[in-house]
Design a protein around this nucleic acid. Sequence first.
DNA 1: GAGCAAGTAGAACAATCATTCTACCGGAGA
DNA 2: TCTCCGGTAGAATGATTGTTCTACTTGCTC
Lengths: 175, 175
Amino acid sequence: MKDTKARIAAGLERAFAENGFSEPNIDSLREAAGVSLRTLYKYMPSREEMVLSALEHRHRRYMQLVFDDLPSDGTPVLHAVLDCVAHWMSKEASHGCLFHAAVASAPRDERLRALLAKHKSEVAEKASEISGLQNRQGEIALIVEGLMQAWPLYGEAATRSAKKLCDTLVNDAPA
Amino acid sequence: MKDTKARIAAGLERAFAENGFSEPNIDSLREAAGVSLRTLYKYMPSREEMVLSALEHRHRRYMQLVFDDLPSDGTPVLHAVLDCVAHWMSKEASHGCLFHAAVASAPRDERLRALLAKHKSEVAEKASEISGLQNRQGEIALIVEGLMQAWPLYGEAATRSAKKLCDTLVNDAPA
DNA sequence: GAGCAAGTAGAACAATCATTCTACCGGAGA
DNA sequence: TCTCCGGTAGAATGATTGTTCTACTTGCTC
């Protein structure tokens, strides 16, 4: 069943987000997935596969939570995006970006690096597109990256800094 | 001898930077340190200690390469710092910030988190101090974090984006 | 009711891991 | 010359790892 695999992926995502990619062994992953060892291996035939599935699941969830139903009141759209990112950090990623963490734990793994690149490029493209600042995609990506990395260190202060940077960017004459 | 320990730490730092914190086993760390197993354990009685020593060694080296002998010609000091950071990334940290990688591989380890916080706060303080923008320390920290995280993805384009953000920050009226 | 698909529970396996231990070596100081 | 000191080389150990396998249980469909 597809929803079995999705349920497993959701549990794995949570386990990796809480404990990183090195610590949890197969048995704790199995427990987090809420499934037997045999079923776990049926859908994800190796630990590597478990990591990839968890990240794919997370990507879908991230795009949804950060970019779907942004408030359509007066607030600048980039501020709303940054608020969603900060909310995501506080609720789901208090240790930092899970994609970077995955690559950091296995820097040689090409499939992981490809997944990271795909995730980040989709985020950057969407953020610059909905803000109407396509010609500033690099700077926007850098602010989002900075926020996600700085949030575990500085909390809401990082959000305020990110918003200030966005403001100076918007006020600035287009390059 | 002290230089034995420093030599070991240097080798370990290189091994962790190249292969992450999960992959290398004790024997490959021993080889990278260029020392016997017994000596390795004499100076660093556990793997955890090896990680900590490698990071402390790296902190010293980072501060030196990024903040010592900045060029005193006309270039804006923040640009020079960002160039040094970019140079550091290309030469030493092509997989990303080693401190974040260490915490990502063991997000529960309090000693690692403390070391990360100390490292980042010293960097942010120094960068804002030498640029004379102490009241913008949060934004500067975020730009540096963004650059270090974005560099492995976008290379020199990330450096250009970071510099642009710095320019808008400097041109902006102080908050 | 037989048979099948999809699941649980957990033992067994070989490999690898971090750590400890024994045995040996070269040089410097008394 | 003797004797530590600081080092090398590598075997031994016990725990843990990812993965596979066997045996059993449900629920659904002909």
